[in-house]
Design a binder for these strands. Structure first.
Length: 877
RNA sequence: GGGCGAUUAGCUCAGUUGGUUCAGAGCGCCUGCCUUACAAGCAGGAAGUCACUGGUUCGAAUCCAGUAUCGCCCACCA
C-alpha cells in the first residue's frame, strides 16, 4: 500500500462529512435509549463564523460525539437567531448604500428586503460549521422567526400579559438615536471617556446680580431643565431654597428645591434637574412633582424646545450653546472631566436616557425558581465561579424592557382601538383581539379595520430565552414526543458574556413555561484573544479567518489548537502555533498508522516476548488512562482530557509501544502482534474521535473494510477495565533504565548501533520480559544480574537497582566520582530533611499514621541507596 | 464606588481533601541526529525563592489576613 508520509486533511474531511450526513448519523429520533441533547446557541442569521464560534462549537461537538459513542441517543439541534437589531442595522446600511432610506419604505417593503437579505446570508454560518465537523442534526434546523417559533413567542407574550407580568410603562429607557430604538441595559456598554465639566450661572429670579452656579457635562440639556436642586444640608444655598432661578437662554423660571440626592461636595453643590433626560433627575422630578420637558427628536436632534437650535444634532448644539453661554456671560469655566459614557453595543452611538412608553416584563418572580435551581445544583454553572455573578445579577434583577422600535422581529400582539391609556387588548391573533376589544368596549360593531397593531417588535432575547423549549415545539404542543423525550437538555455551551442576556433568562423561561430546568450544565467558555491579550474583533483585524485556518491545516488541527489551551471560563490566547501543533499531532497519528498498515506480516512467525509484553503493558496503560479521561470529562475538563489523550498517543503509543513491537531490520511482523496492535489503535481512535473526528474516521476505515453501521462516529466508546499497576510500574522502571542508557550514549558519544552490555544488582525485581524490553530498546548485547563490582563501568540507579554499563576506555574516573558524590550529597540532604521530620515529636504524634509510615519508608529507602552509593564510590576510587 | 477571580519555568496552563525523593505538562529554547512510520520527526538537556508580607499548622504552591499588579462583572455622582 502506498500511503503518503504527510497526512492530507482536505482530501479526507469533505468526504467523511458527506458520508456521515448522507447516512443520517447526525439525525436523531426518540427511541428507547437515553437521550443526550444540546441546543446550539443560535448564531446571528447573517453572521459569519469567528473564532469564538469555533471554540464554542468545537466543545459542543466533542460532547455530542462522545455521548454518541457512549451509546446515548445524541441530538444536537442547530439553528440561527434573527438578531433583530443587528440584522436590521445591516439591512438599513445596505439599503442606504443603494440610496434607499428606511423612512421611505413601508413596514412590508422593508421586511421584504430583510427577508431577501436573510435568505441570501442566512445559513452561511451553518455551512461553515460543517467544515468544522459539527455533527448537528440538520434536519432539525430552526430559525427564531420560523412560523412555529413566531407563534410560540406570541403565545408566551399573551400568557405573560394575562398573568399580569407584562405591562406598559412610561419609563426612562436607553435610547439609541442611531438605530432609533430602545435597547436593554445589558446592551449599553459604559466606558470612561474624556469629557468636559461646564460651570454655568443661573440668575436668581428677582435678585439682580445673584446667581446659583451648577456644573454639567451636557450643557445642551439646560433647555430641558425644570428645577435646580441643592442639598438640604447646604448652608451656602439655604437662602435660595424655594426661590426661582432663570434658565439661561430659555429664560424660563424654575424652582430651586432641596433634595438629599445632591452631594454638596461634588461640583458646585447645586444640580440642574432635567427629568426627561436623566434617570436620577426623573426620580427627583417625581418626588417634587416637576414638569418634564423632552428636548430631543428620536434621531438625537433637538425639537422645538431647543428653540433656535431646533433640528441640530445634540453634539453640535453642545458646542454652539457653550459659545452662546460664554457670549452672554453665563459660562463661568470649563474643566476637563472624565466620566462614564454609555454607548450602544451595536451602533456605538452615545445612548440618550429618554422617557418613553414601552413594554416591560416583571422579573422578580420569574427569577426566584432560577435562583433556587442554581443554588441547589439543579443547574450547574461550569466553572463555578460564575455562580457569584449570576446570583448577584438575579437577586438585583430589574424589569426587562422588551419592546424595540424596529420592524425585524416578532411584532408585539397588542391592538389599539382608541387613544386612551387603556384602549388596547393583547391577543394571539387579530381575530381574537377583535373579540376582546368588542367585549372591552362593549361595542359589537367594532371591526378589524378599527384595530391598530403595535408597531414595535420584541427584543431578540424574548424569543431566544425560549429556544430550548421552542426547538421542540414545547410551547404550542407540550405533549409532543420530541419535547417529552429531549427536554430538558443536558449541556449548554456558551460565552459568559451572555450569561444574563440569555442563560439566566432561559432558566427562568424553563421553569415558567416547561415547569422544569432547560439544561443541567452550563459550560461557559472563555473569550478568544490574540497573543497580545486583545479580544479578537473585526475592527482590530486581529482575528484569523477560521475557514482559512481549516483549509490550511485541517479542521482536526484547528479543533485541537482551540482546545489545547482552554479550560472552562479561561480566556483563550489564540496562537496559530497551537493549530500547527494540532496539525503535527494529526501527522503523528497518521504515521503511527502508516507504520502498521505498510508492515509486512508473517502468519507463521511466533510472537516475540517483547511484543507480547508490550501489548499487555499498553492495554493496562490504556485502561488506566481511560480512567483519567473519564474523570476529566466528568469534571468538564475538556482540554485536560485532550492533553491526556495526546500524551497517551504520542508518548505511550508512538514513542514506546510502537518501538517495542517493531521487528528487527528487514524482518516481518508476526501476525498476532500486528492484529493486536491494530486493535489497540482502534481503541485510541475511539477516544480521540470526539476531538479529531476526520482523521480518526479515515484511519478507522483503512484498518479494515467496514459495514455502514460500523462507521467510527456511531461505534462504541471503550469499556473501563481493571489494570495491573505492578506491570505499569515495572515498565516505568524499564523506561527509566532505557533513558539513562540513552543519556550515557549521548554523553560518551556512543552510536545507537553499538550494542552494549548492562549488569545490575536486583532489589526491585525485573521479570525476564521486562529485561527483554530494556535490551531491545537500549540495544543491549547482554543484560545480567551481578553480585560483583563491575570494573570500568558507568553506574546509575533506578528505584533501588544499581546498573553498570562497562565502557572500556571511555571512563573518566574523576568525573564519575564527581557525579556519584553529587548524588550522594543530594540524598544525604534529603535524608536529613526526612529525619528532621521524624525526630519532631509533634509530627510523629499528630500526623496521620500513614504519612508517618511513608516518611519512615523514605528514610529506609534513602539509607539503602546511600549504602549503594557509598560502596560504589569505594569501588571507583 | 461595590463585588468576583487571577498571580506557579520565556509563553500558555495543570497541581484534586495541606503530607510520595528539593513543584509538573505542552509550546518555545539549547545539544546531537536526514536511525528503514513521521525533520510536521527522533533522542537528550537547561530553565521556577509557586507575586509580596505576615499568620495558622508537626508540615503551606495549597488554608487565613493584609499588600501589590492584572482581568472581569455590577453601579445614577451632575
Amino acid at each position: 500500500m502506498n500511503i503518503s508520509a504527510k497526512y492530507n486533511p482536505s482530501e479526507v474531511e469533505r468526504k467523511w462529512y458527506e458520508y456521515w450526513d448522507s447516512h443520517g448519523f447526525f439525525h436523531s429520533e426518540p427511541d428507547e435509549r437515553e437521550p443526550y441533547t444540546i441546543v446550539i446557541p443560535p448564531p446571528n442569521v447573517t453572521g459569519v463564523l469567528h473564532m469564538g464560534h469555533m471554540l464554542n462549537n468545537t466543545i459542543q461537538d466533542v460532547l455530542i460525539r462522545r455521548a454518541r459513542l457512549k451509546g446515548y441517543n445524541a441530538l444536537w439541534v442547530p439553528g440561527t437567531d434573527h438578531a433583530s437589531i443587528a440584522t436590521e442595522a445591516k439591512v438599513v446600511a445596505k439599503l442606504k448604500a443603494e440610496g434607499i432610506d428606511k423612512k421611505d419604505l413601508t413596514r412590508e417593503q422593508f421586511l421584504e428586503h430583510a427577508w431577501e437579505w436573510t435568505h441570501k446570508h442566512g445559513g452561511i454560518i451553518l455551512k461553515q460549521l460543517r467544515y468544522l465537523g459539527a455533527s448537528c442534526d440538520w434536519r432539525r434546523t430552526k430559525f427564531t422567526l420560523d412560523p412555529d417559533m413566531y407563534e410560540s413567542v406570541i403565545k408566551v407574550f399573551v400568557d405573560l400579559y394575562n398573568k399580569g407580568k407584562i405591562y406598559r410603562g412610561f419609563r426612562m429607557v436607553n435610547w439609541d438615536p442611531e438605530a432609533q430604538t430602545t435597547i436593554s441595559d445589558e446592551e449599553v456598554i459604559y466606558a470612561d471617556e474624556a469629557g468636559k465639566l461646564y460651570y454655568i450661572n443661573y440668575p436668581i429670579a428677582g435678585r439682580e446680580g445673584e446667581f446659583i452656579q451648577i456644573a454639567t457635562t451636557r450643557p445642551e440639556t439646560i433647555l430641558g431643565d425644570t428645577a435646580i436642586a441643592v442639598s438640604p444640608e447646604n448652608q451656602k444655598y439655604q437662602k435660595y431654597i424655594g426661590q426661582k432661578a432663570v434658565v439661561p437662554i430659555a429664560g424660563r423660571e424654575i424652582p430651586i428645591i432641596a433634595d438629599d440626592y445632591v452631594d454638596p461636595e461634588f461640583g458646585t453643590g447645586a444640580l440642574k434637574i432635567t427629568p426627561a433626560h436623566d434617570p436620577n433627575d426623573k426620580e427627583i422630578g417625581e418626588r417634587h412633582g416637576l414638569e418634564i420637558i423632552d428636548i430631543f427628536n428620536p434621531d438625537g436632534t433637538l425639537n422645538a424646545y431647543g428653540l433656535h437650535y431646533e433640528g441640530m444634532d445634540r453634539f453640535e448644539v453642545r458646542k454652539k450653546i457653550t459659545e452662546e453661554l460664554k457670549e452672554k456671560g453665563f459660562l463661568v469655566k470649563v474643566e476637563p472631566h472624565t466620566h462614564r459614557v454609555g454607548r450602544s453595543e451595536r451602533t456605538k452611538a452615545v445612548i440618550e436616557p429618554r422617557l418613553s412608553r414601552q413594554w416591560f416584563l416583571k422579573m422578580k418572580e420569574l427569577a426566584e425558581p432560577a435562583i433556587r435551581a442554581v443554588r441547589e445544583g439543579e443547574v450547574r454553572l461550569i466553572p463555578k465561579k460564575f455562580e457569584n455573578t449570576y446570583f448577584h445579577w438575579m437577586e438585583n434583577v430589574r424589569d426587562w424592557n422588551i419592546s424595540r422600535q424596529l420592524w425585524w422581529g416578532h411584532r408585539i400582539p397588542a391592538y389599539y382601538f382608541g387613544e386612551g391609556e387603556d384602549d388596547f387588548v393583547v391577543a394571539e391573533t387579530p381575530e381574537q383581539a377583535l373579540e376582546l376589544a368588542r367585549e372591552k368596549t362593549g361595542n359589537p360593531g367594532l371591526q378589524l379595520s378599527d384595530l391598530r397593531q403595535d408597531e414595535d417588535v420584541l427584543d431578540t432575547w424574548f424569543s431566544s430565552w425560549l429556544w430550548p423549549i421552542t426547538v421542540f415545539d414545547g410551547i404550542r404542543n407540550p405533549d409532543n414526543p420530541d419535547f417529552k423525550y429531549y427536554y430538558p437538555t443536558n449541556d449548554l455551551v456558551t460565552a459568559p458574556e451572555i450569561l444574563f442576556f440569555w442563560v439566566a433568562r432561559m432558566i427562568m423561561a424553563g421553569y415558567e413555561f416547561a415547569g422544569e430546568k432547560p439544561f443541567g450544565n452550563v459550560y461557559l467558555t472563555g473569550i478568544v484573544r490574540d497573543k497580545l491579550g486583545r479580544k479578537m474583533s473585526k475592527s482590530l483585524g486581529n482575528s484569523p479567518d477560521p475557514i482559512k485556518l481549516i483549509e490550511q491545516y485541517g479542521a482536526d488541527a484547528v479543533r485541537v489548537g482551540m482546545l489545547l489551551t482552554s479550560p472552562a471560563g479561561n480566556d483563550l490566547p489564540f496562537d496559530e502555533q497551537l493549530v500547527i501543533q494540532g496539525r503535527n499531532f494529526a501527522n503523528k497519528i497518521w504515521n503511527g498508522f502508516r507504520l502498521l498498515i505498510t508492515m509486512e506480516t508473517d502468519k507463521n512467525k511466533p510472537q516475540p516476548e517483547t511484543a507480547r509484553t508490550a501489548v499487555a503493558w499498553y492495554r493496562n496503560k490504556f485502561a488506566r488512562t481511560l480512567e483519567q479521561i473519564e474523570d476529566d470529562f466528568s469534571k468538564y475538563r475538556i482540554s485536560e482530557a485532550l492533553k491526556t489523550i495526546y500524551s497517551l498517543i504520542w508518548d505511550d503509543y508512538s514513542s514506546w509501544f510502537l518501538e517495542m513491537i517493531k521487528p528487527g531490520y528487514g524482518e516481518k511482523m508476526d501476525a498476532k502482534t500486528h492484529n493486536e496492535a491494530l486493535e489497540i489503535l482502534e481503541n485510541n481512535l475511539r477516544v480521540l474521535h470526539p476531538f479529531m473526528p476526520f482523521i480518526t474516521e479515515e484511519i478507522w476505515q483503512h484498518i479494515k473494510p467496514r459495514e455502514e453501521n460500523e462507521s467510527l462516529i456511531v461505534n462504541t466508546w471503550p469499556e473501563a477495565e481493571k489494570y495491573d499497576e505492578d506491570l505499569i510500574a515495572r515498565m516505568e522502571h524499564a523506561k527509566q533504565v532505557v533513558s539513562n542508557i540513552r543519556k550515557i550514549r549521548k554523553e560518551k558519544n556512543i552510536p545507537n548501533k553499538n550494542r552494549l552490555d548492562l549488569f545490575y544488582k536486583e532489589i526491585f525485581g525485573l521479570p525476564g520480559e521486562i529485561r527483554s524490553i530494556i535490551a531491545k530498546l537500549a540495544n543491549l548485547n547482554r543484560l545480567e544480574k551481578t553480585g560483583e563490582p563491575v570494573e570500568n563501568a558507568v553506574s546509575f540507579r533506578v528505584d533501588k537497582n544499581e546498573y553498570y554499563l562497562p565502557l572500556e576506555g571511555l571512563i573518566d574516573k574523576d568525573e564519575e566520582l564527581k557525579k556519584l558524590k553529587e548524588e550522594y550529597e543530594y540524598l544525604q540532604g534529603f535524608l536529613a530533611s526526612v529525619r528532621k521530620k521524624l525526630s519532631n515529636e509533634r509530627f510523629v504524634q499528630n500526623a496521620p499514621p500513614a504519612v508517618v509510615e511513608k516518611e519512615r519508608k523514605k528514610e529506609a529507602d534513602a539509607l539503602e541507596k546511600l549504602a549503594l552509593l557509598e560502596k560504589r564510590i569505594g569501588e571507583v576510587e
